[in-house]
């Protein structure tokens, strides 16, 4: 499935990728998906933790062509 929104957070240090995720959650409809591409290792923990704390769904990770992980989030509310 293609995401509704891709956020390029390459080169950003945490918490910046999480802040971008929070700012853009409203840009996708409920049920829609955002992918956050982040090379900061902290994002691997912090995207799922954000989903738990904000009651959104963490779908999983898929790597971009350049190997940078993309963290998939589905908007639930």
């Amino acid at each position: 499935m293609n995401p509704d929104l891709e956020l390029d957070c390459r080169g950003m240090l945490c918490p910046r990728p999480i802040i971008e995720l929070a700012r853009h959650l409203g840009d996708v409809p409920v049920g829609g998906e955002i992918v956050v591409y982040a090379d900061d290792v902290a994002a691997a923990s912090d995207v799922p933790a954000w989903c738990r704390m904000r009651a959104q769904e963490y779908v999983g990770v898929q790597n971009a062509d350049d190997g940078v992980p993309g963290y998939r989030v589905r908007r639930l509310s």
Binding site: C14, P15, I18, V41, A44, S45, D46, A49, W50, R52
Partner: peptide, 16 residues
């Protein structure tokens, strides 16, 4: 520049 491996292993938020 690595987050706490303790927090990571617990699935806790690592920043802030």
């Amino acid at each position: 520049l690595e987050p706490s491996h303790v927090l990571t292993a617990m699935g806790a938020l690592t920043h802030g």
